[in-house]
């Protein structure tokens, strides 16, 4: 493995640098800049799903809860509590971890499919709560979220356009990618993989299946929440639309599109799906059919991802 690292590292570095430069190269095109920013934000969210699905091998349908923790953390934090971006980030992460802990402990002893069902129901119920609770803005949501303003002493940086938000978004993307890489090389990543591929063998090798699931679930919470945090500042709006099935469909499709456990897999997946949605749109309902069909076709025909066509 050490011998082949340099080549894949080089590719990785070039791809990321290239991605970083695209909005600046096409800075006049709001469409392209917006596309890049949204791709990165949604990709960050999908990495939470990635570690649960590609590594742990389970399906968590409750990531919307963590997404919501991120967005509503900003919504409540800025409009009601006047918090700084760093503080809203902390708030978002804490709320996400709390939700994850509650769900995680409740589902600690249940089987895989029960875990998926409970997380699914949690998301639908959370939708109902967010839709009806005045405190969270009810169906209207929370409007007028200020743009992200970072201050250090006398200096302040206001990210009031997509282009100005881009460096922050990209930085968070790099951090998430770094976390994923470290996760996969850590004990937790190995144990997640072992529980996925052969639970009996994993157990006899000392892996505590339930605790591993809980830990990975808890790790995924802040990752998706960070995406939500950025999303709120990018849209200047927070609402119950984050609970719509679109997001989980996007995340799952992006994660399986290229193949499992590929570092840039979800990022490229999100980029491709978003590309279709923005530039080759079939209309709202048509896009739903397309995205659903993409997910189904991938799983039926190419369960190992598109790249399996190029492997043996």
């Amino acid at each position: 493995m050490p011998k082949s690292l340099p080549l894949s590292h080089l590719f990785l570095a070039l791809a990321l640098i290239g991605f970083f430069l695209v909005p600046y190269a096409w800075s006049d095109s709001r469409v392209i800049v917006g596309y890049c920013v949204l791709t990165a934000i949604l990709a960050i969210m999908s990495y939470g799903v990635d570690m649960i699905t590609s590594d742990l091998g389970e399906v968590s349908l409750g990531q919307a809860l963590f997404l919501a923790a991120g967005t509503y953390g900003v919504g409540i934090g800025t409009t009601r509590l006047g918090l700084s971006p760093v503080a809203t980030l902390a708030l978002s992460i804490v709320v996400a971890l709390a939700l994850g802990a509650v769900l995680g402990f409740i589902t600690l002893r249940v089987r895989e499919f029960m875990f998926s069902l409970v997380t699914y129901c949690a998301a639908v119920v959370a939708h109902e709560v967010a839709y009806n609770l005045e405190f969270l803005g009810a169906s209207e949501g929370i409007l007028g979220i200020p743009s992200m303003e970072l201050t250090l002493g006398p200096f302040s940086y206001v990210a009031d356009t997509n282009l100005r938000l881009w460096p922050i978004v990209f930085l968070m993307l790099l951090l998430v990618l770094g976390l994923m890489a470290l996760f996969r090389r850590s004990t937790l990543g190995a144990e997640a993989l072992m529980s996925h591929l052969n639970p009996d063998l994993a157990e006899s090798l000392g892996v505590n299946l339930r605790r591993t699931r809980l830990k990975v679930f808890l790790l995924s919470a802040p990752v998706t929440a960070v995406g939500g945090w950025l999303y709120a500042y990018q849209r200047n709006y927070v609402g119950p639309d984050v609970f719509e099935p679109y997001f989980i469909m996007l995340f799952l499709s992006a994660v399986i599109l290229l193949g499992k456990r590929l570092l840039l897999g979800p990022l490229i997946g999100v980029a491709l799906i978003l590309f279709q949605e923005r530039f080759l749109s079939l209309g709202g309902d048509g896009n739903k059919v397309f995205l659903g069909a993409l997910l189904v076709v991938m799983l039926l025909a190419l369960p190992r991802g598109a790249l399996s066509l190029f492997r043996k």
């Binding site: 399906v59 349908l61 499919f113 998926s116 099935p245 989980i248 469909m249 799952l252 399986i256 309902d285 048509g286 896009n287 739903k288 059919v289 397309f290 995205l291 659903g292 069909a293 993409l294 997910l295 189904v296 799983l299 039926l300 369960p303």
Partner: peptide, 15 residues
């Protein structure tokens, strides 16, 4: 896979 496939089918039907 069955869970995700049926989820996908659900989305197709919605659209």
């Amino acid at each position: 896979s069955i869970m995700i496939i049926t989820l996908g089918i659900s989305y197709i039907l919605t659209g």
